[in-house]
Amino acid sequence: MDALDDLDLRVSGCRACPRLVDWREEVARTKRAAFADQTYWGRPVPGFGPPDARLLIIGLAPAAHGGNRTGRMFTGDRSGDVLYQALYDVGLASQPTSVAADDGLELYGVRVTAPVHCAPPENKPTPGERETCRPWLVQELRLLRPTVRAVVVLGAFGWQATLPALAEAGWRVPRPRPAFGHGVRVGIDRSEGSVGGGGPAGLDLFGCFHVSQRNTFTGKLTPAMLREVLSTAARAAGLGK
């Protein structure tokens, strides 16, 4: 087991936030009628993708009947349908759909994670829950330091979690901290002499509207807009077409 696998295993056993534990487990018991015959994951959902990823995508939190059901980020819900279709379109995924953890989907040089690993009520984790979960994101970033060269953050909530996590993981985040916006691109410099022997390489940080149903149904985020951010980030990371 490599270090990232070990981290994922520890994430999946976390019970630090009582409200989130109660909610995710209640959803797993009661289920949605369409999935009544399925066994829900009902635990924190770890990141997904190769340990040498050059591009990291950071979302919000698992969906109650998506990742909380399937056990894999953005899998089994409409937000995931949009994200993985776009990743497939730009050459970063092996297939355009993501319906189950064993469906054969592979990501090419990309890892997907979230600042909150448990499904929250109404898809709204609290800032305090985000802070409680942040050490997991910091550890994930530290493990990806040798290879990651670009980060795409889906939404303002994730952006607010990612900037301090990058700083804690050893990157030099600009001050004042850059504001979130769709299409924003920020160069994050390497930090000198950070913990672990030498600073990480610099990276490019990209903002993108979240792939929520609200954004995609209203046209605030279109497939073309998402593909543009992902393809630009992939080029920055040395990936893609």
Rank of each mutant, 00 (worst) to 15 (best):
D37P: 05
V116E: 07
R134L: 15
Y108F: 09
Q95E: 02
G67F: 03
D102F: 03
N68K: 01
L107A: 08
G42C: 01
L56R: 04
P120C: 15
R69F: 00
N123C: 02
P120I: 09
R111E: 12
T39C: 02
L107D: 15
V82D: 10
E26L: 11
P120E: 14
E25A: 09
G104Q: 05
L87F: 05
Y40Q: 07
Q38F: 00
H65W: 06
R43F: 09
P125C: 03
T97S: 15
E106R: 01
L107E: 13
P146G: 04
N68A: 14
G76L: 00
T126I: 03
V21W: 07
P146Y: 03
L144D: 02
T132W: 07
A64R: 07
G80P: 05
A101E: 09
V138L: 05
P62D: 03
P18G: 13
F35C: 06
Q85E: 02
R142K: 14
A33M: 06
K124D: 14
R111L: 03
N123Q: 09
A101N: 06
P121H: 11
I58E: 13
R32E: 09
Y88Q: 03
T97R: 02
F74K: 04
L20P: 15
T113Y: 07
E25T: 13
P121D: 09
I57A: 00
R142V: 10
T75S: 06
V90W: 05
Q95N: 06
T30L: 15
T126M: 13
G109F: 12
F35N: 13
D22L: 10
V112H: 13
E122Y: 10
T75N: 01
L87G: 07
G66W: 01
A53G: 11
G66C: 00
G91D: 11
P62L: 05
P62V: 01
R134V: 15
E129F: 08
A86E: 07
